[in-house]
C-alpha cells in the first residue's frame, strides 16, 4: 500500500443511509476500490477515522439542524472535491416536504415535547450552504453512476453523467413508452436519466426520484398528465415527493396546483 493513495471521506446528514449503502452494495467492486483509495472517514463502514484534508468527500443527506450548518462548512474546508450524493443532499429529500408546512404543528404530531428536538423548520440541499463540485442525483443514487463519479474525480476528469431525460433511457433500453401504450402517467420526459428507466421497465410511470432534467418542459407535460386522467392536485402531489424542493419541480407543482 502506498501512502499516496487518494483519501476518500463519506459524510452523512439527514437521510435514510441508502446512498452510502449503495457504496457498500458495489460488492464486487468494493474491495478493488478499497485497494485504490484510502478510506479516511466512513463511519458506517469503519471506526478508524482520519483527519482531513480529504481528496474526495461524498456527502449524503440534507441540512436539517443548526449543527449541520457548522459541520458542512468544516467538511467543505477540509475537502478538495465535494460531491453530494442523492436526493436529500441535492434537493432536501422527502423530509423537505415539511418546508411548506407549519413546523410547530408538524413537530407536535410526532413528539410530545417538541422543544427537545434540535431541528430546523426546513430541510435544505448542501449547495445552499457551501459550494458543491458535483451533484449526483437519485433516491437512491445509482450504483454505476456512483462508481463513475468516484473513479472520475479520483482520475481528475469530468464524470460521464448525462443530464438528459429518462425517455432517452427507455428508447435505449427498448422499453415501450408506458404513456403512449397504456396511458400511464409518467414524469420520464422531465426527469433526469440515471436509473436506467427502471420504473417504465417495470410497467410503472416514472415518479421523478432523480429530480428534474436540464431545462425540463413541465408546462408541456401538464396537458399530457391531465389527458392520462391525473387530477391537478395529484400532479402537484406527484412533483412534491422526493425532490419537492428542486426548483423546477417546485414550480411545476405550483403551476399544476393553480
Amino acid at each position: 500500500m502506498s501512502a499516496s493513495r487518494p483519501r476518500l471521506a463519506v459524510w452523512k446528514f439527514s437521510s435514510c443511509d441508502g446512498c452510502q449503502l449503495t457504496l457498500l452494495d458495489c460488492e464486487e467492486d468494493l474491495l478493488p476500490l478499497a485497494d485504490q483509495v484510502e478510506i479516511a472517514y466512513f463511519l458506517e463502514a469503519s471506526r478508524d477515522t482520519g483527519p482531513g484534508p480529504y481528496d474526495l468527500s461524498l456527502v449524503e443527506g440534507s441540512i436539517a439542524t443548526r449543527t449541520d450548518i457548522e459541520r458542512i462548512r468544516e467538511i467543505r474546508a477540509q475537502s478538495r472535491v465535494l460531491v453530494t450524493i442523492g436526493a436529500c443532499a441535492t434537493a432536501g429529500g422527502v423530509q423537505a416536504l415539511r418546508n411548506a408546512r407549519d413546523f410547530d404543528k408538524l413537530r407536535s404530531v410526532v413528539y410530545a415535547r417538541p422543544e427537545y428536538i434540535d431541528a430546523l423548520a426546513t430541510s435544505t440541499p448542501i449547495a445552499q450552504h457551501v459550494p458543491v463540485d458535483f451533484e449526483l442525483r437519485g433516491c437512491p443514487v445509482d450504483k454505476r453512476q456512483l462508481l463513475e463519479v468516484v473513479t472520475a474525480f479520483l482520475a481528475g476528469r469530468k464524470p460521464d453523467v448525462p443530464d438528459h431525460s429518462v425517455c432517452f433511457e427507455c428508447k435505449r433500453r427498448g422499453v415501450t413508452c408506458v404513456t403512449v401504450a397504456h396511458g400511464t402517467p409518467c414524469l420520464g420526459p422531465v426527469t433526469q436519466a440515471g436509473c436506467g428507466a427502471l420504473c417504465p421497465a417495470f410497467g410503472r410511470g416514472c415518479f421523478g426520484c432523480f429530480g428534474p432534467k436540464a431545462d425540463p418542459n413541465t408546462r408541456a407535460l401538464l396537458p399530457l398528465l391531465r389527458a392520462d386522467g391525473v387530477a391537478d392536485e395529484d400532479v402537484a402531489r406527484l412533483y412534491r415527493t422526493f425532490n419537492a424542493e428542486a426548483p423546477a419541480f417546485a414550480e411545476a407543482a405550483e403551476e399544476a396546483g393553480r
Partner: peptide, 13 residues
C-alpha cells in the same frame, strides 16, 4: 435529526 414521516403522510394518498 427527526424526519417527521408520520406528520408528512397526513393528507397524502
Amino acid at each position: 435529526p427527526p424526519r417527521f414521516f408520520e406528520a408528512l403522510l397526513r393528507g397524502r394518498r
